[in-house]
Amino acid sequence: MTMWNWDAFFGYLFSPFLLRGAWTTIWLTAASGAIGLALAGLVAAAMMSNVAALRRAAQVYVWLFRGTPLLVQLVIIYTGLPQIGLRFSVVASALIGLALNEAAYLAEVIRGAIQSIPRGQRNAGLALGLTPVQTMRDVLLPQAIRIMLPTLGNSLNGLLKTTSITSIISMEELLRRTNLLIQERFLTLELFVVASIYYLVMTSAWQIVQTRLEARYGRGHLRALDNAEQR
């Protein structure tokens, strides 16, 4: 067991190699989160559809992706699918795996949030002459977003760290790059502390964004009302 190496620690703290890895983590999180959210919206719509076959398909999808480890899904996408002629790059495989997995969790969150809004709100929108789509967009969704923002925010925080699993298919995000450096010089503790600091900075920055979003969508509700009154 060697002593803690401060020089190495500060050297790695600003290492371009690791910073680029962190950047990969950020855009991988943002891209798979965005794709996953869009997909989750579609799956939630299928869950609430009048068409029984769509509802069933959505159920099977959610069951499949929530019931198996992401690690297994990634390996199947990257190394299994080529055997049936579907070949994806490392980046594409990582994006697909993370997005599909995220969507399976978020679909349920979106459906729950929308269905928790009193039925009268939909009737009020329709009664004014809004189409069902306009009612969803202008009346139900903004209220559903307020309800699901805390869950969505936590989920994105989780996703930021979950991206590290893609290192298994050699995606060069922060954790894989950290591991590559460890294999060079065996400064395991220093490097993991540096990586942890990176993750903390990223999750803290996201926390600030999330707090602002929650305040924005909370307008009209009790906590936000106090602020509005003071203005």
């Binding site: 009193p118 009664a127 209220q143 307008r219 009209g220």
Partner: peptide, 12 residues
């Protein structure tokens, strides 16, 4: 136009 028992104003 329609007016409901529970008002149903849009809270947001």
């Amino acid at each position: 136009g329609m007016v409901f028992q529970q008002f149903e104003l849009f809270p947001h």
